[in-house]
């Protein structure tokens, strides 16, 4: 079963931001990455899924039910961590979490204590007095306290120190093992690389690529940086599989995917001063997607 099913979802705000004809599915039990630069439409998509804003056209289903029409019902099983955490200032952490729990018809006290323990969160402090990172922890606990079947995270790691980030990821992996599906939006690629099974890349409101993380990495891009003794013509490297070719005098750099032998014999034919071949990280692969459409 698809836990999330987005069909031709379009949301326009006047003219500027928004999403256009977005379609993708998130399967039961997977950790799905949702990647894009700031302003790409990640939060817009998530807020539409949660019924905070309404689609201009198209629709989205969660647990097989329309996310607007059956909003209150499906939200029983959704845990959400917003990108910016703002909560009622005048409350203590404990009160806020109890208030949050009071909307779900189950006893969450044990889970709150557990989660607060894992995230090292002081329940007796006032929210007003908390640092950004600690507010984020409150966000994490309120999103997970009712043991939701679907966890939606909008840029969840900002403000968390590396140790807490690690614990948070462990927590998510544990939730995932328990059976929870996770939609993880981020512009930080390394965290997606670590956690996610599949990833959707979104740019300017459009889906650019939907791929398994493993496939993305297997695609075997190599970054080549060459220094030649004599200037070469840019056309020399114009062959299949070459991307982001930059030639500045005697320095040449590009991304290459394809038969390495073909490339090596091509390079062997020119007089080199230096050569560097490296594995690009996901970031570079994504930058490539981001820029391709410009």
């Amino acid at each position: 079963m698809h836990v999330i099913e987005v069909n031709n979802l379009t949301k326009t705000y006047g003219s500027a931001r928004g999403i256009t004809n977005l379609s993708f599915q998130v399967e039961q039990g997977e950790i799905f990455g949702f990647i894009g630069p700031n302003g790409a439409g990640k939060s817009t998509t998530i807020r539409t899924l949660l019924g905070l804003i309404y689609p201009t056209s198209g629709n989205a289903k969660i647990f097989g039910k329309d996310c607007i029409q059956y909003g209150p019902e499906i939200k029983k099983e959704i845990g959400y961590l917003p990108s910016e955490v703002f909560y009622y200032d005048n409350m203590k952490v404990k009160d806020l979490l109890q208030y949050s729990a009071s909307f779900y018809k189950k006893d969450c006290r044990k889970r709150i204590a557990e989660l607060a323990g894992i995230m090292d969160l002081d329940l007796n402090k006032k929210i007003d007095d908390l640092s950004l990172g600690n507010k984020k922890k409150v966000g994490i606990v309120q999103g997970l306290l009712h043991e939701p079947k679907l966890i939606i995270l909008d840029e969840p790691t900002s403000g968390l120190d590396p140790l807490m980030q690690q614990r948070f990821f462990d927590l998510l992996e544990a939730e995932n093992k328990r059976g929870a599906t996770i939609l993880f939006s981020s512009h930080i690629l390394s965290e997606v690389q670590r956690l996610c099974d599949r990833v959707a890349i979104i740019k300017e409101g459009k889906l650019i690529q939907l791929e398994k993380i493993s496939t993305l990495q297997e695609n075997n891009y190599k970054r080549f940086k060459l220094e030649t003794k004599a200037p070469v013509s840019p056309d020399y490297f114009q062959l299949n599989g070459v991307n982001e070719l930059k030639v500045e005098g005697t320095t040449v750099s590009f991304l290459y995917r394809g038969n390495v032998n073909a490339m090596m014999s091509k390079i062997a034919a020119i007089d080199l001063a230096n050569i560097l071949v490296e594995e690009p990280d996901l970031e570079e692969i994504f930058m490539h997607y981001y820029e391709k459409e410009d």
Partner: peptide
């Protein structure tokens, strides 16, 4: 104004409730 709408309305209640 206080950005708590996002907190409140992701709970299982409708806007009318």
């Amino acid at each position: 104004r206080d950005k708590t709408a996002e907190f409140l309305l992701v709970r299982p209640i409708s806007r009318s409730q």
